[in-house]
Design a protein around this nucleic acid. Structure first.
Ligand SMILES: [Mn+2]
Ligand SMILES: [Mn+2]
Ligand SMILES: [Zn+2]
Ligand SMILES: [Zn+2]
Lengths: 140, 140
DNA sequence: CCAATAGATGAGAAGCTTTTGCATTCACTC
DNA sequence: GAGTGAATGCAAAAGCTTCTCATCTATTGG
């Protein structure tokens, strides 16, 4: 299970790491902040410090288990790396996050980078807008 | 000159605001951080506090004189609003920033938002890569 | 199974960018 | 020119993230 993924990442199999990975795998929310993770751990009566949450998430990111994004809000959000690249659209009212992939956009970016003489290492595309979810206005 | 732009923004014409606006208009670097602006002011022997720089840039942004971006680095960068939307490609080695516009990408984003039921308010697309500038490796 | 050790952890301090509180100063109106 | 609400500088504080350090633990190999 999680143990092997952690070991493969060159990390010791410790309770915090296992719990955090489990949590990411089972959470309803794919996109969570370090604080979110910390609070979920508290709610689950796990005695894990916030510093450890940050450390572990960073290590997971370095190991490619997790991806980190900046949805302009002043903090980072993490999600399990599911192998295939995607971009995000975020509701400015309720915070809902949807994912999408658009091959045309990907190709165009490559073209632009070529023309400007850049070798792409990564990119961030986030669309912000208001969603039509039924309880959009009711959420935080 | 600048005075009128400031007045039109509903702000009093004060030395800090005029200096900052001049600086943004004359700087070689289009994309500058608050700290950059502050240092430039210091270099020009202007006695303006960093808090004021932040306040003024924020007011300029609210007035539409300036745009604020987050090139993932932990701080914000500002640029004079030149009216037409564009996206950015940033060199991860030397920090050079190039601008581009791609109608196809813009349209595709609209399509995606439509399909997912979002009304776009804005978007951020930043491509990161290594540039082929002659002194790319020599810069900070 | 145990001892040795490199690595991991929690708590709090510290770091960085950005914001805020407040006393003082200033721009604009009459 | 006086009056007033806005603007400023400084220092303090906030908010997120990282670091320090003393303590603890997973792993290894004897
Ligand atoms: Mn995602
Ligand atoms: Mn720009
Ligand atoms: Zn919504
Ligand atoms: Zn470069």
């Amino acid at each position: 299970m999680e143990d092997q993924e952690i070991r493969n990442a060159g990390l010791k199999v410790t309770a915090p790491r296992v719990k955090i990975l489990e949590l990411l795998e089972n959470s309803d929310e794919r996109h969570v902040s370090a604080e979110d993770v910390y609070k979920m751990l508290l709610a689950a009566n796990e005695d894990i410090g916030l510093a450890t949450v940050y450390r572990v998430l960073t290590q997971f990111e370095e190991a490619g288990l997790v991806e980190k994004h900046h949805f302009e809000d002043g903090y980072s959000v993490f999600e399990l790396n599911k192998g295939k690249h995607h971009d995000h659209i975020v509701c400015i009212t309720c915070g809902r996050v949807e994912e999408f992939v658009d091959e045309t956009i990907e190709q165009r970016q490559q073209k632009i980078a070529d023309e400007l003489g850049f070798q792409i290492s990564e990119h961030d595309l986030v669309i912000y807008g208001k969603c039509m979810d039924d309880n959009c206005d009711r959420k935080g």
